[in-house]
Nucleic acid binder design. Sequence first.
DNA 1: AAACGTGCCAACCGCGGCTCA
DNA 2: GTGAGCCGCGGTTGGCACGTT
Length: 236
Amino acid sequence: MARTPGRDKNGMKKGTWTPEEDKKLRAYVSKYGFWNWRQLPKYAGLSRCGKSCRLRWMNYLRPDIKRGNYTKEEEDTIVRLQKLLGNKWSAIASHLPRRTDNELKNHWHTNLKKRLGQNTPLLLSTTPQEATITENHSCDHEVEPKNISGIPLNCPMAPQMAEGFASLHLSSSSSKTSLSLCMEAVGFSNMGCKASRDSYIAESTGSFWTEPFITDNNIESFLLQDERLFSHDLFY
DNA sequence: AAACGTGCCAACCGCGGCTCA
DNA sequence: GTGAGCCGCGGTTGGCACGTT
């Protein structure tokens, strides 16, 4: 499981993290946050590279991580999103609150892929062509069918936008949100609706997963969906 | 009980994208 | 426009844990 401790060419420690290192990193990040992963280990008193610290925090030490015990709903969601988006684990993880991309990736390779290969019934029937997912999510009771990218199914541009959504890199930390990129990809501009979008967000208190889906053929509704899709990442 | 095989998952590595000077 | 620095992602690996022979 753990790797043999060693040093890289810069003298940085590699391999398994010790409880003391975890304690230092957790204490530092809890107190100061992570403003620069590269510099952080120096100030936190760790002989680790920033990348290693980031990985340890993101995949293990973060307080809100849920580990193991995948529900059927979660597995169902993973399989569907994998089918839809491919190995975009970070994007898939963004739809599974408290799960990390690394964990999803491991779970996929060690469990789900094999089970699918054996045609073990694992998920509800769905057609890959329609890029539509019934989000029967583990953390709530959303059952209303909707497109995974938040694109209304009756939108004339839905196919193009879904394609754009799937093909774009869906980094939750991107300075542009995914759907905004999608819209650019299919020829929409921002259309100057940021102010009203911001005001909506300020007023909105509902959860993304429980909010009624807006089906208007309305650009702003796309932006709102996008904002909500990734809103849970703002914690970080 | 020992040897061997396999599963699992934490951690590493390399690359690409983004930001900023 | 460009190059450096940094971050995040996805693929891969190392090695412990556990099962089987």
